[in-house]
Amino acid sequence: MTVTENSPTLSENEVKFEELLAMGAKIEPRDWMPDDYRKTLIRQIGQHAHSEIIGMQPEGNWITRAPSLKRKAILMSKVQDEAGHGLYLYSAAETLGADRTDMLEKLNNGKMKYSSIFNYPTPCWADMGAIGWLVDGAAICNQVPLCRTSYGPYARAMVRICKEESFHQRQGYEIMLTLSNGSAKQKQMAQDALNRWWWPAIMMFGPRDDQSPNSELSLKWKIKLFSNDELRQKFVDIAVPQANILGLTIPDKDLSWNEKTGHYTYGEPDWEEFFEVIRGNGPCNKERVSNRREAHENGQWVRDAAIAYAKKHAEAALSKAA
């Protein structure tokens, strides 16, 4: 037994787990894993799934009012993708022993969270552009490294999701481009949307590293591969030149190019606002969750009917066979 040689405090299971992580191998559903690794993943994957499902609402809001049939078809596709992403992620969480029905109940009664970005309103068509460009852009910065996260089913779900997200971002940017090249009024719509979404997008990466208590363990377990601030910097560095091409101004007076670091320096978001939204006091928190609960309750009879139908046919097949 090599356990005592490695460390007197680690069990044989822990040693094996650490070895797999050190090798860069994936942890798969039936492997032994520390309870906190499992809990952290269920929380993170569950929140991620919920974000996709709640994230359908700000854009679903514009499907009936999209300015052309083409834009309407595109928006429907994108919202359908988001439902799909939620489902991939619920499946991944279920491989850890989480129960999908329980997770949805916890979303509906506010016991589980989702990304605070989806608690902001979408009053204007240009918001569809800004969401695709900035919100999906920030999501991509977060998600691309997650394709290499240490838990196999989560990593595989992320590969699928990232392939589809790139369409989302490009369609949003194209909306911004069209508006920016349009009339002065249309360009102003695009600028206003950028003003509304810039700071919430910056805050999507979570609190500053020195304020993020869960990060250290997640990094050690290779659930996260980069810190919040590293990912935020990457996003800013990518987004600034994109704004320049649109001819729009990022609403940050402290934004400047730093020759020495080779990165943009950016200002501090309003963290008080961030924590308020997380506490449930953002502009749309109540509306988002109550819509979700209503949809779930109104769908109950459909789920009941489907189960009754399946049961009836399974019984009929059995009696036929007998």
Binding site: L87, S91, R160, A306, A310, H313
Partner: peptide
């Protein structure tokens, strides 16, 4: 490709079509 929840085989096939073959 992954997993999903469905009431019966027919619904599972249709959901799989929607979930895993949108492209």
């Amino acid at each position: 490709a992954g997993s999903l929840r469905a009431a019966d085989a027919e619904m599972a096939l249709q959901n799989a079509r929607d979930l895993y073959t949108r492209r």
